[in-house]
Design a protein around this nucleic acid. Structure first.
Lengths: 137, 137
DNA sequence: CCGTAGATGATAAGATTTATCACGTATGGA
DNA sequence: TCCATACGTGATAAATCTTATCATCTACGG
């Protein structure tokens, strides 16, 4: 697993590498696109308290190790990432995968030029229908 | 105001143009980047019930007339839009403006080609520091 | 191997969101 | 224009979700 990268990034950001935080990240790496309460329910079986899940998600997200996005039905969902990434969400089955490629540097430059903002980053979520769901339709 | 466009789009999507929904949209057009409870508090003075605010936001968003995005601190915030737009959020003062230009068609094509997803849309939020806050720093 | 700052678990407290239901009204057709 | 009705609203209760508290535990640097 890429735990090596995770561990390095956690210490880089000053986060203690606790079993609970690793479990939260792993759960979101295996099943991206969960809500916090789904995560909490799933991890309670491992003896992890729900308050800890909330805190771990907050900490990991602040460290840039989780991506949060606004899903349909007004939900906040999360996915594990190791660096900058975009999300590709299937509107039919709800599955999520991350896109490593990021072609937005030029766009950011253009925005910076036209708005005089100092750009620090962005979040992109692309919606569509995955191949499997296209077949099923 | 662009209520003409709003009214047209509401009927196009099968939404009744009630004063409450118009008030919600107008409040988010005047002050983009509010949470639902901020909206509800603000509109309660106009005699609009909080349940109605929740319902109106949901309806307007489903109709594509509001943009929802995941703000720092785990909050869901909203901004009024009339068509497709991106958001530019200032991380210092929290102000939000919309970007009309969208240079992501080529990127969507590339994602569609490499993933075999049928792409239907995207949400982009750009973070940075606005000119006023840059001065203040 | 120790000391300590920081993390966890359990539960209580607080806040947010939804459900319910009687009443009101926007909208299409006569 | 006026009516009928399907849809929306307001008030409040109920359900959910999130955070705070505090005693205990532990990851990590020395």
């Amino acid at each position: 697993m890429e735990d090596a990268g995770l561990e390095r990034l956690m210490s880089l950001r000053g986060l203690r590498r606790t079993p609970q935080r690793v479990a939260v990240w792993n759960a979101l790496a295996e099943s991206p696109g969960q809500t916090i309460r789904e995560l909490a329910a799933r991890l309670q079986g491992s003896g992890i308290g729900q308050a800890t899940v909330y805190r771990a998600v907050r900490a990991l997200e602040d460290a840039g190790l989780l991506l949060r996005y606004a899903a349909p039905r007004g939900e906040l969902r999360y996915a594990a990432v190791l660096g900058h990434a975009h999300l590709l969400v299937c509107e039919e089955c709800g599955s999520v995968r991350s896109l490593e490629q990021c072609g937005l540097a030029a766009y950011e430059d253009e925005v910076a030029r036209t708005t005089d903002y100092r750009i620090s980053g962005h979040t992109l979520v692309v919606y569509g229908v995955c191949p499997a769901c296209q077949e099923a339709l």
